[in-house]
Design a protein around this nucleic acid. Structure first.
Lengths: 336, 336
DNA sequence: CTGTTAGCGCTTTCAC
DNA sequence: GTGAAAGCGCTAACAG
């Protein structure tokens, strides 16, 4: 027998409508009433029923966080930031895992099931498929993408082309010419753009410097250290192995570092390595990387969605590109 | 104008009560009616309103996942497993971050706000404070702890004492006597037991082998690579530095590895290192570790909570201790 | 500024 | 096996 709004109303000596208004801080309540209601509610230990409130008011106070991964560092860090921001303003975070891009056997994401359950969405890249995106739009709730852009939908991301260019230019500036790239997943079913853009940036910088890397210098990895290691082993067994590697993520770079060590190569003496992200352990590892503000992207995406929910239409079309920066540590040096 | 149960009832030619029963698969509905209702619902694209359903039925179909961290590997991996299991059976995962154990400025976790919003809880260690635990129990919903035990509450964990012993014994068996331990956070406000138990296991094995390690061999780290590195630097600057380090987590161990490299020490030649977890990148790093089934613990905790919700009282008092195993890789060897 | 009155969309007795 | 009707606890007009 939980405490209901009616009990609070009785104790405070007002109507349930007034209790409702007072507790939500609506302006049309006198300070005295406000205080009386607050006290009564607090005394009774009253907590509004979310279901009743949602049903009557049409708002769920919940934001869905849609993501293909949870345990990977980048995703976990974004989710953490989104959850904090939501909790700060009294919203719930509903975690919605969608099938991983590369596994075929997972059931497809059915946005329909979210109908009426969320007031907004924060969607982490890799992007949803066209069909999923259409379905999700049909939910007609505010939403923001993190890590990818899409016209007509708010987004917060970094400039992956620029990341690729900056990384390659850093290596080129040090005197490297044989620079390989590792990233991108051939099994990707959601055409995740980041690795492709980072690769394009690398290629662009290379060509701009008058270098035309052989196709064997563009390796694949699904953003894990294990595949980064494997890719590096392939690179090192080439007739003309690279003197530097640009990894599309720090996780991949860790794999590169391990492979180099196994092969008896010194880093950065024999092989320079640069990653992307500035993962929690990158500083400890001394990894040179292109840092991106991961948590800040999550926080901002949550803020944008909340702002639009609050009626701030001016932000409805924001496409924020956050800054990245080269963090030069110990894994890059001129070729020997 | 979403499709309501009434619309489905009209199309199927039955009452809303029957639609409700049919869609939930209650036995008291004839197969024909069942099929007719299913078809009508599907044709209309009907999705039940969670709020209305919760309000009327008293069940939210939501499980709260309470955690002090989201982005750390262990937590993210458990959360991932819990979310998958919940989604598999149609439950929602409500992510609830509680203040990190060591930060004083976060607002305390108020379990009261979850009243009526969840049908059950999965709570990740570090444990809640006594007050929080009492409050949470007052919610009177089934719950399971992961990574810690508590009488009267279901739990899924590993034997941390045994982990500590196994790790130390492995090192002792290789011939080490000067074995240090890194783990445990002096700022911990939630008396997180795992690091203490792992340390106790290490100490027990040491004493059993007739070794009494100096107190300087028990170092602190908050389970991050950065503090693991710092702790190692302190250990290496001792008059009599250890020849082996047992780190309470793989993340800490990564920090140890980096510190050793910076100090010009070869691993395992000059320093042996063993961790705990079997983190995603540990295999790539060649780290010897005590592996624990992280995802499996999360999945099982979710299963337990769901089972009790379904009325399976027989599991209400389960305290599962999952097995761990030594994974001997490349960072441990006899002392030189 | 506050009270009254309808619902929100579903589940659940209780009949039949 | 199925329907009718009564709420679940709250918010949203609409008055005053």
């Amino acid at each position: 027998m939980p405490v209901r709004i009616e009990d609070v109303a009785r104790v405070a000596g007002v109507s349930t409508a007034t209790v409702s208004r007072a507790l939500r801080g609506l302006p049309s309540v006198s300070p005295d009433t406000q205080a009386a209601v607050r006290r009564a509610a607090s005394d009774l230990g009253y907590v509004v029923s979310r279901s009743a409130s949602s049903l009557a008011g049409g708002k769920t106070q919940t934001i869905g966080v849609v993501t293909p991964y949870i345990s990977r560092w980048y995703y976990a860090t974004v989710i953490d930031a989104v959850e904090r921001e939501l909790r700060r303003v009294g919203y719930d975070a509903l975690l919605v895992g969608v099938g991983e891009p590369k596994t075929a056997d997972v059931e497809p994401f059915r946005p329909e099931i979210l109908r009426g359950r969320v007031d907004g969405l924060v969607i982490l890249t890799a992007p949803l498929t066209g069909q999923e995106m259409d379905d999700v739009r049909r939910l007609t709730v505010p939403m923001a993408l993190v890590g990818a852009g899409a016209s007509g939908t708010m987004s917060v991301r970094v400039d992956d082309l620029s990341i690729g260019r900056t990384a390659a230019e850093h290596l080129i500036g040090l005197g490297h010419r044989k620079i390989a790239y590792i990233g991108g997943d051939p099994d990707d079913r959601r055409n995740f753009a980041a690795p492709l853009d980072r690769r394009a940036g690398w290629l662009s910088a290379m060509r701009h410097a008058g270098i035309d890397p052989p196709s064997s210098y563009a390796e694949m990895s699904d953003f894990t250290a294990a595949t980064g290691q494997e890719a590096t082993e392939r690179l090192l067994s080439l007739t003309e192995p690279p003197t530097a590697v640009f990894a599309a993520s720090d996780d991949i770079a860790f794999g590169v570092l391990c492979a180099a060590r196994s092969a008896g190569l010194a880093v950065p003496g024999d092989l320079s390595v640069i990653g992307v992200d500035d993962h929690d352990i990158s500083e400890t590892m001394g990894l040179t990387t292109i840092a991106q503000p991961v948590a800040a992207q999550g926080r901002l995406a949550a803020e944008l969605v909340l702002a639009v929910i609050r009626g701030d239409v001016s932000r409805r079309h924001e496409h924020v590109v956050m800054p990245t920066r080269l963090v030069d540590r110990l894994t890059t040096a001129p070729p020997s």
